[in-house]
């Protein structure tokens, strides 16, 4: 039976933990609003970009000179997995669920006899994947310094990836990230970025019978457009990730705060019972002492 003092100390420590989780939840909520706004603001660009890619890829389909970023290298031997996670923990299962999705992909690809290479963006993903697949990690991109995701950051990552592609280090690239749906729901998502796959459901605009003119020609435009497309996809993934991370942290911390509250209630009850028991004991002692006289 813990003493009254012990119980009091425990209540105090749980209460201070609760204060921390509560503060973290509020910070996450404030950051979430900003991250969500950024993610929403980036959507029009990404969507229009997809439209343009869909449009152009339809017009060069079947052309043997089509750029490799669109048509692929012709083989599918080496797969690059870009795994984007957060840098900080305490956000529930957010990172683990992205890593799990990546791990399933690795197992599947290895089962098919393909070579897998991994690039991690964000510290948590690297930590988790290093244990199991340390040998497959080819590069890590540190995002610790980034406070607010800017397009330039995503462009840097895209340039690294494109350089690797130019040097023939991989044939197919997939991007893993957590798509933000709502505060309580973040969906781990995988997306193929190289060769660029025109997303389904996007239709080329209706030209009313007119013919598209290109300046310079289609191939020149594609040469500029496709690297940008990769950059935009990575940018979007990073923004979605940032929003998802805060959302996941908010609900994780909300749970923690509630659990701490339950615990405090339970400990308080225990404390009060112990106190009452002690008072009763003292009274019995006094009364029996008085009776003995």
């Amino acid at each position: 039976m813990p003493s009254l003092k012990d119980l009091k100390n425990r209540i105090g420590s749980v209460r201070s933990t609760q204060k921390i989780t509560k503060a973290m939840q509020m910070v996450a909520a404030a950051k979430l609003r900003r991250a969500e706004e950024a993610a929403v603001a980036a959507r029009p660009y990404a969507e229009r970009m997809e439209g343009v890619v869909a449009n152009l890829s339809a017009s060069v389909a079947g052309n043997p000179d089509a750029p490799k970023l669109l048509a692929g290298t012709g083989s599918e031997e080496t797969h690059l997995l870009i795994v984007a996670t957060s840098d900080k923990g305490l956000c529930g299962g957010f990172n683990s669920s992205i890593v799990r999705l990546a791990r399933e992909a690795i197992v599947r690809l290895q089962g098919e006899g393909k070579t897998v290479k991994i690039v991690t963006v964000g510290k948590k993903g690297r930590d988790q994947l290093k244990r199991l697949y340390g040998g497959l990690l080819v590069r890590h991109i540190d995002t610790m310094e980034i406070k607010r995701v800017a397009y330039a950051d995503a462009k840097g990552i895209a340039d690294t990836v494109l350089e690797m592609f130019e040097e023939g280090e991989f044939d197919v690239a997939h991007l893993f990230y957590g798509r933000y749906k709502s505060v309580i729901s973040q969906v781990p998502t995988v997306q193929q970025i190289i060769p660029a796959k025109a997303p389904e459901g996007i239709q080329a605009p209706d030209l009313k019978g007119a013919i598209y003119e290109y300046e310079p020609d289609e191939e020149e435009i594609l040469k500029v457009l496709l690297p940008r497309y990769v950059g935009v996809q990575i940018f979007r993934a990073m923004l979605e990730n940032a929003a998802s991370e805060q959302g996941a942290r908010m609900s994780a911390m909300d749970n923690a705060t509630r659990n701490a509250g339950d615990m405090i209630d339970k400990l308080n009850l225990q404390y009060n019972r112990a106190r009452q028991a002690q008072i009763t004991k003292e009274l019995i002692e006094i009364i029996s002492g008085a009776e003995a006289l």
């Binding site: 343009v52 152009l56 605009p205 030209l207 007119a210 013919i211 598209y212 003119e213 290109y214 300046e215 310079p216 020149e220 435009i221 500029v224």
Partner: peptide
Amino acid sequence: NHAPFMST
């Protein structure tokens, strides 16, 4: 009412 056109 410009004709369909794309440029960098």
